[in-house]
Design a protein around this nucleic acid. Structure first.
Lengths: 209, 209
DNA sequence: GCCTGTGAAGACGTTCACAGCA
DNA sequence: TGCTGTGAACGTCTTCACAGGC
């Protein structure tokens, strides 16, 4: 099982499952079937079973899945059984909002460094107490802080330059909020968060439909 | 051609193409081949040609595509030849950042209304001058302002309730930033912007690799 | 010669349907 | 009986390869 190629969509769904499972834990539900979990996540039950099958056997036939166990197992699969050190580059409105956002910290994502090119911001602190560094300190600070993931929140025209520097540090991956396609070496991992693309999707479907 | 089912991914890529094309316009490039555009967008050239083929013929054989024309055509396909009226619900850090964000306005997405449950915020104005209303004014205000798309930026536990109200207004679609799965009637359009899912994707790939 | 447009082939992901087990 | 685990069938999307036209 382990050596089959795992669809990208499977990983995204695993992330969704953890959320639903966390809610179930709060509601003190101890056992859940693929059918029920599927309804909560808006997917097909067979899909859930198949997704899990890539990584092993987690259920009990005739019963279902033990909520806490499954949550633990999926988190382990996703690599969420550790904290991740993040650096943010570009602390404008959006950057600040992200650093302050609780959903990151709740999952073990920790902002350990912040950078901005604006001289007015360098040397100041964010509301969380995080010191803002100049971009030319990027390599040095990221290495001392053991940064693993760089979050790009600059205007699009600076994104590629910042990406290059992050890759040089080196960080292991990049989360890019700038609405531009970043070029990276083969094998290097970038995830794009792109609201304008999502809005364009809406616009298309609302126009056509 | 027009009646074939169009892949969801095609629409997302069209959105990417518009960006690359806008850059090319700035660089005063007048003609582009599918090969060059493909490199800029990180996709296969045949993919671009196929994507466009769903909607008609836009290129010139032996030459390529005229940048400005193609940009215009794709924007029209996506429904970006008009402005869209948006309402934001939840103006915390993230919500404020979104309203202020230039990438929305640049594409013709206009925030025309804002809502928040916090009594301290109601009646105050955002930096853009937009007045913050109480959530119970949602239906009334959205109808007067002709809101077409609702943007949910509340904590996850309020998202479903807000979604229900937006659907009742009715708005045509929802952009959801809350990290939770919203249940909507068959055919109603929701797009989710989900950074924690993206981070989980990174975490997985950085762990496994 | 060069690049688009497109049927056909191939790769991929999802769903079905049922065997296997509590 | 009930629900998981999974090969096989199905459907969808992507890539190839070449015909068509500047």
């Amino acid at each position: 099982m382990k050596f089959l190629k795992i669809p990208a969509a499977t990983i995204t769904r695993l992330s969704l499952y953890t959320r639903a499972l966390e809610d179930l834990v709060v509601e003190q539900v101890t056992v859940v079937s693929s059918k029920t979990l599927a309804e909560l996540c808006g997917v097909n039950p067979a899909q859930i079973r198949k997704d899990l099958a890539y990584f092993g056997q987690f259920g009990v036939r005739g019963v279902g899945y033990y909520v806490k166990e499954l949550l633990f197992d999926i988190k382990k699969i996703l690599g969420l059984n550790k904290d991740w050190n993040l650096a943010i580059v570009g602390v404008g409105n959006l950057g600040c909002a992200l650093v302050a956002h609780e959903n990151f910290t709740k999952q073990g994502y920790r902002f350990r460094a912040a950078f901005d090119a604006d001289p007015m911001k360098i040397g100041r602190k964010l509301t969380t107490g995080l010191l803002i560094h100049a971009p030319d300190k990027l390599g040095e600070v990221c290495r001392t802080e053991g940064i693993e993931i760089g979050v790009i929140c600059t205007p699009p025209n600076f994104a590629q330059d910042i990406a290059n520097r992050l890759i040089e540090v080196p960080v292991k991956g990049i989360l890019n909020f700038a609405p531009t396609q970043i070029q990276v070496p083969e094998g290097f991992r970038v995830e794009n968060v792109d609201f304008t693309v999502k809005l364009d999707n809406l616009a298309y479907h609302l126009t056509a439909g």
